[in-house]
């Protein structure tokens, strides 16, 4: 697949969209892979005792999962030079089924001199933004 070219990008272009599903098994898998065993991400009783509506996804699990849309678009994971986000709302993950997270990747800025593009991700769950100011800087030259 052809790699995206800096010269072809215009600020505001939507370059990719995706819906990712996060279920309880994904949270357990992420806990093991990351070493983050905070029980709010797998123990319903603990989560409700500390005032949460139930088990919620690790913010880092959501952050790690949604960026794959950019990796696939750019075609090289090593091209991602900077990636940041703010965790604005938790993603509750039900005991059955999965939480659907909608991702839209838009060109936020193009820097021809640096050979980079900033891709902004809009990340929502049931119509609410769950990540804020999610920016991925990719090197394209």
């Amino acid at each position: 697949m052809a790699r995206p070219q800096l010269a072809d990008l215009t600020v505001g272009d939507v370059v990719a969209t995706r819906t990712v599903e996060i279920d309880r098994a994904a949270l357990v898998r992420y806990a093991g892979a990351s070493g983050d065993f905070n029980p709010i991400h797998w123990d319903e009783r603990f989560a409700t005792e500390v005032g949460l509506p139930g088990v919620i996804a690790h913010g880092m699990c959501t952050m790690g999962t949604v960026v794959d849309v950019v990796t696939d678009w750019v075609g090289d994971p090593g091209a991602i030079v900077r990636y940041g986000t703010r965790f604005t709302k938790p993603v509750p993950v039900p005991a059955g089924g999965a939480a659907a997270v909608e991702v839209t990747a838009t060109v936020g800025a193009v820097d021809a001199d640096a050979g980079t593009a900033r891709i902004d991700l809009t990340v929502t769950h049931e119509g609410t933004k769950v990540l804020g100011r999610t920016q991925v800087l990719v090197r394209l030259s």
């Binding site: 892979a33 990351s34 960026v67």
Partner: peptide
């Protein structure tokens, strides 16, 4: 393992 956990299929 981490890539599988975050759905990174590249």
């Amino acid at each position: 393992e981490f890539a599988v956990a975050v759905g990174a299929s590249h």
